[in-house]
Design a protein around this nucleic acid. Structure first.
Ligand SMILES: Nc1ncnc2c1ncn2[C@@H]1O[C@H](COP(=O)(O)OP(=O)(O)OP(=O)(O)O)[C@@H](O)[C@H]1O
Length: 756
DNA sequence: CGGCACTCAGTTTTT
DNA sequence: CTGAGTGCCG
């Protein structure tokens, strides 16, 4: 026990030892917030608390697994029984376990974004008035945000009506239909998991079930509390309604998911929200950063200090460093040069004694950026691991197999049924399905019912024959479904549906092996689940796999005949890097338009959706609201992942849609460089062995520019036309031109600035 | 019904 | 430029 506490500083220990009553640890990056949660749980276990009574909520499944592993090491095997999971997994498990009590069918499926979008498309076809200016994805987002805020279709409609928002009424109609369809399909989407759980817990009828959980969770912990949304807070309140023992940790500077409905105010208002009549929330702060060198912490501060809406923290680090060794800024000509620079630096580092075994990460704003790095790393034979990117489960083969499994578990799942009914081709095409769907609607039954009752239809014998064949295959598979482990069953399934033959026919010449290997990987994943998570049924496997996505999945690329086994470089988005740490970090693509992303360049805070007419923008703030500060935080999160060595790189040109585009260095770089000027460090400290950063200021209206051809002109307007801003310039010769600043024919005239 | 060719939209981040 | 999605034709 003492050994446990000795691994903490005074501030951390105080938080760990405070175990009666709600508490919040509000502290900056790298101060050991996650460590506090982990050690607090270990501490509780040591005090003899039953692991069964402890809950810990993490942001990703991977983080959950890591915390579990850590707990087992700190305590012992019994720690396995601590419930550590994400909000989504937690709810999925509750719904699954309590299905019967809640009056739900246990064989529900969890729809991912793609499934949901298919369903929404169907709904949109059904409504007479089309919501112009909205993509299916926009609607999906709107529905997600509604669910994050526990707004059901009825309330959504009422809100729309009373606020005279006609467009929202259409959305409400689609939302309502979508929700009905989900029920018909016996499916939940991601946000339903939480919304439904809350809904059921709130229902008087189920008060006993609610109390069972509230009674059980004597100690609740939540990591990354700055990124929770309303529904999660409500759930937390319910779960803590008996013991009021909630311990949350968070850092307002690391809020990077507000686009997903999270709100930092829940962290800032935790005290108000969770204090009770008897106990007030106890607040803790930690000020020592254990992760990063002083220098890196300094740089992170230079950046984040530019955010207006934040709570000042006085972080310090005791790890000495030297600017010129620890932070490198590099300008590259082209995106490809940047990747090459990174590759060469990594190879160089691996030659050094200091960094040969280091954890190295390349962090970027968008998944698309990984591509260049993948190419170049392959060329340089640098092994890498890519987190996220094209989700494994987005691959055709995987989707097919999963869809088969889903239909076997839950034939009412029409999205999956429609996917697989003709894979491989068995002569049941679109027209047949359309016919059966109409029939289903008329008879108020499901597609599946109609398929089963195919005899009573007027379809041709040929089609009927195909359906009969399909049904007998279905019966066969169903018969064996529960006799094997998921991994075995997948193999069995593939064989029975002749899937391999289909792949061979469809891909006679190319990527056959890749497709085969995907299937093999799925079998491996299933096996892993069986061993690691103690999963033995298809149902459990499906539930886990639906929630185990992007940030949890990684793809490893190794290279043979490697003289020594190099540690693989990790490639991922800044979002996925949350909570992690690396010795060496490359933040790449630091250009305006990428980081910060293009639609926030120009307005600091504003609305992004260009399709929606101006006067409607305010109405859909949840879709359009953007904020430069969140981009800055993203960059900040990247920097603070770094322990020892940080590279910030950018380029002047990149290829976009087959065209070369000019880029400007990110304002974040400039902010950091400005910070340098003010600090004791000199300019040359930071960019010792790299090129001088080209200083380019940002144009605002009223400023003057000079153009190669048109001469001097005044900027009269800035037009935000994706993907780049354009400026409207009134030249001295009277010509008015709309120009892209990207085309370097334009230079700013400094002395001319008459604005202020 | 299925396969091929053409169009066009698109790069934000994820449970 | 790519990939998904649609439409047309055999
Ligand atoms: N008291 C301590 N002694 C030694 N190392 C510590 C101590 N506290 C934290 N650390 C180390 O500091 C690093 C950061 O800890 P942790 O990930 O828990 O911080 P965090 O506050 O959750 O970070 P972030 O919010 O940036 O993700 C870890 O490597 C951890 O092991």
């Amino acid at each position: 026990m003492n050994e446990l506490l000795s691994q903490l500083n005074d501030q951390q220990r105080a938080a760990v030892e405070y175990i009666d009553g709600p508490m919040v640890v509000f502290a900056g990056a790298g101060t050991g917030k996650t460590r506090v949660i982990t050690y607090r749980i270990a501490y509780l276990l040591n005090l003899g608390v039953n692991p069964y009574n402890i809950l810990a909520v993490t942001f990703t499944n991977k983080a959950a697994q890591e915390m579990k592993d850590r707990l087992v090491k700190l305590f012992h095997q019994k720690a396995e029984n601590v419930w550590v999971s994400t909000f989504h997994s937690l709810c999925a498990k509750i719904l699954y376990t309590e299905a019967k009590n809640f009056g739900l069918k246990k064989n529900f499926v969890i729809y991912d974004e793609n499934d949901s979008i298919k369903l929404i498309k169907e709904c949109m076809k059904e409504v007479s008035i089309q919501p112009t200016n909205f993509s299916v994805y926009d609607i999906y987002e709107l529905i997600c945000r509604a669910k994050d805020n526990l707004i059901d279709p009825e309330s959504y409609k009422i809100n729309a009506v009373v606020s005279h928002q006609y467009h929202r009424e259409i959305i409400a109609e689609i939302y309502s239909r979508y929700q009905k369809k989900l029920v018909q399909n016996n499916a939940f989407d991601f946000n339903d998991l939480i919304m439904k759980t809350v809904e059921l817990f709130k229902n008087e009828k189920f008060v006993e079930i609610k109390n069972k959980y509230a009674q059980r969770f004597k100690y609740i912990h939540v990591d990354e509390y700055q990124d929770v949304n309303y529904s999660q807070v409500v759930l937390l309140k319910i779960l803590s309604s008996i013991h009021h023992n909630v311990c949350v940790v968070g850092d307002d500077d690391q809020t990077i998911y507000s686009w997903r409905g999270s709100n930092v105010n829940y962290l800032l208002n935790f005290k108000k929200d969770f204090s009770t009549k008897d106990v007030e929330v106890k607040e803790f702060k930690i000020t020592q950063n254990y992760r990063s060198k002083k220098t890196i912490l300094d740089v992170s501060n230079m950046l984040i200090n530019h955010n207006k809406y934040r709570v000042e923290k006085n972080l310090f680090s005791n790890i000495e460093g030297e600017f010129k060794n620890d932070i490198k800024i590099k300008q590259c000509e082209h995106e490809y040069d940047e990747a090459e620079f990174v590759a060469k630096e990594i190879l160089k580092l691996q030659q050094t004694e200091k960094f040969c075994n280091s954890a190295v990460a390349v962090l970027y704003r968008t998944n698309a950026q990984s591509r260049v790095f993948e190419e170049v790393f392959s060329e340089y034979k640098i092994p890498y691991k890519i987190v996220g990117s094209v989700a494994f489960y987005d691959r055709k083969e995987i989707k097919d197999i999963i869809a088969y499994l889903r239909v076997l578990v839950n034939p009412e799942d029409s999205v999956s049924l429609k996917r697989i009914i003709n894979i491989p081709s068995r002569g049941i095409g679109e027209t047949t399905i359309l016919y059966l769907e109409t029939l289903a609607k008329e008879n108020k039954t499901s597609l599946w019912e109609q398929i089963v009752k195919i005899d009573n239809t007027e379809l041709s014998l040929k089609v009927k024959n195909s359906v009969w064949k399909f049904l007998s295959l279905y019966d066969l598979l169903k018969k064996y479904k529960d006799t094997m482990y998921p991994s075995e069953f997948i193999k069995f399934l593939i064989e029975k549906i002749n899937y391999i033959e289909m792949i061979e026919e469809n891909n006679r010449f190319e990527n056959k092996t890749e497709r085969m290997s995907n299937i093999e990987q799925l079998v491996d994943i299933a096996k892993n689940f069986e061993v690691q998570n103690n999963i033995s049924t298809i149902e459990e496997f499906l539930n886990s796999i639906s929630l185990f996505t992007t940030a949890d999945t990684e793809e490893k690329i190794e290279f043979k005949n490697q003289n020594q086994k190099l540690k693989e470089v990790v490639l991922m988005t800044l979002h996925s890097a949350k909570g992690l740490e690396f010795d060496v970090v490359f933040i790449v693509g630091l250009v305006e338009g990428v980081l910060p992303i293009w639609w926030v360049t120009g307005t600091d805070v504003g609305y992004k959706n260009f399709n929606i007419p101006y006067d409607e923008k305010n109405m859909f703030y949840e879709l359009n609201y953007v904020n430069i500060e969140e981009e800055r935080r993203l960059c900040y999160v990247g920097i603070t992942r770094t322990k020892k060595l940080l590279y910030l790189t950018y380029y002047l040109k990149r290829r976009l849609w087959g065209e070369e585009k000019h880029c400007l260095p990110s304002r974040f770089l400039e902010e950091i460089l400005d910070g340098y000027k003010e600090s004791s460090a000199t300019h040359t400290d930071i960019i010792s062995d790299v090129q001088e950063v080209e200083k380019i200021d940002y144009l605002t209206t009223g400023e003057f520019v000079v153009h190669d051809k048109f001469g001097v002109g005044k900027v009269v307007d800035i037009v935000r036309e994706p993907p780049y801003d354009k400026i409207v310039v009134l030249f001295q010769n009277g010509q008015r031109k709309k120009l892209s600043f990207q085309h370097a024919k334009l230079k700013k005239l400094k002395g001319y600035n008459i604005n202020q």
